[in-house]
Amino acid sequence: MSKNDLKGKVVLIAGGGKNLGGLLSKRFAAQGAKLAIHYNSESSRVESENTLSEILALGAEAFLFQADLTKVENVSRFFDEALAKFGHIDIAVNTVGMVLKKSFTETTEEEYDKMFGINSKSAYFFLQEAGKKLSDNGRVCTIVTSLLAAYTGLYSTYAGAKAPVEHFTRAASKEFGSRGISVTAVAPGPMDTPFFYGQETSDAVAYHQSASALGGLTDIKDIAPLVEFLVTDGWWITGQTIFANGGYTTR
């Protein structure tokens, strides 16, 4: 599947209403794709509705789906609603995530469970639904984090909960490969979005800005084309986690 083939394809995006997900939704729509766009909660509704309005103004078909994807039945329902509306799903992208920056000794059981529900459990069952419901030769991509290659404290639940997604990606790619489905993960550096700033002090922001070899935080405009490539022309890449962070971490 090349970029020229996106017209008429159905793209399902978890967390597709704002930030990186919103940008991806609009870029896919501009190339003629049909969109199933998930957002999590009422706090994301206005931005998600604005994204939908922009997409509809392009003449693309799209709908919004609001749900907590830590509940497996909601993941299944999201895929089922896309199938009911469009008849098939060709590409599934999962941008869902939550950051917690907190010391190991102060993290509560409730915080642990919440972080693993959002960053790990929802990703697992998103991949499971994709394996069940994507068309043959479909594409799946999950957003993880460059902290998977970092030697640092304070992100034990965030990086720790994203870490299993690397193996989920490998396992899914192996199991789904016989149907021509490729499965990848993208690990951006700290992205210049509200998702990042809520957990960081000004000193920490300055450090993250200076830590990459190319300088500055990761721009979502630099990540979106990579995701597009992996689910179109880059379909032959599968089972891999791609670190895209301007030299913030590597391994």
Rank of each mutant, 00 (worst) to 15 (best):
S41P: 02
S43F: 09
S44F: 08
R45W: 02
V46T: 10
E47F: 07
E47A: 15
S48T: 09
E49Y: 12
N50G: 13
N50H: 08
I55G: 04
I55V: 15
L58I: 02
L58R: 00
L58W: 00
L58Q: 13
E61H: 08
L64Y: 01
F65E: 01
Q66E: 15
A67N: 08
A67L: 01
D68S: 04
D68K: 01
L69G: 08
T70A: 06
K71Q: 14
V72L: 12
V72N: 07
V72G: 00
N74I: 01
F78M: 13
F79N: 02
D80I: 08
E81Q: 14
E81H: 03
K85P: 09
F86S: 09
G87H: 11
A92D: 00
V93Y: 02
N94Q: 06
G97T: 02
G97N: 05
G97H: 06
V99S: 08
V99F: 05
L100K: 14
K102Q: 12
K102H: 03
S103E: 15
T105W: 14
E106M: 15
E106S: 15
T107F: 04
T107E: 07
T107G: 05
E109R: 11
E111I: 13
Y112K: 05
D113G: 01
K114I: 06
F116L: 06
G117Q: 06
I118W: 05
N119I: 13
N119G: 10
S120L: 12
K121D: 03
S122V: 10
A123L: 03
F125G: 14
F126Q: 02
F126M: 09
F126N: 04
F126G: 02
Q128S: 10
A130S: 12
A130M: 05
G131I: 05
K132A: 13
L134M: 10
L134T: 02
S135T: 06
S135F: 03
D136P: 03
R139E: 13
R139S: 14
R139P: 10
V140Q: 04
C141V: 15
V144N: 07
V144R: 11
L147F: 15
Y151F: 04
S156T: 14
Y158E: 13
Y158D: 10
A159Q: 04
A161M: 12
K162C: 09
A163I: 06
P164T: 12
E166A: 11
F168A: 08
T169G: 06
T169E: 09
A171F: 07
S173Q: 06
S173V: 02
S173R: 09
E175Q: 14
F176Q: 07
G177Q: 08
R179I: 08
G180Y: 02
I181E: 12
S182I: 07
A185N: 12
A185S: 15
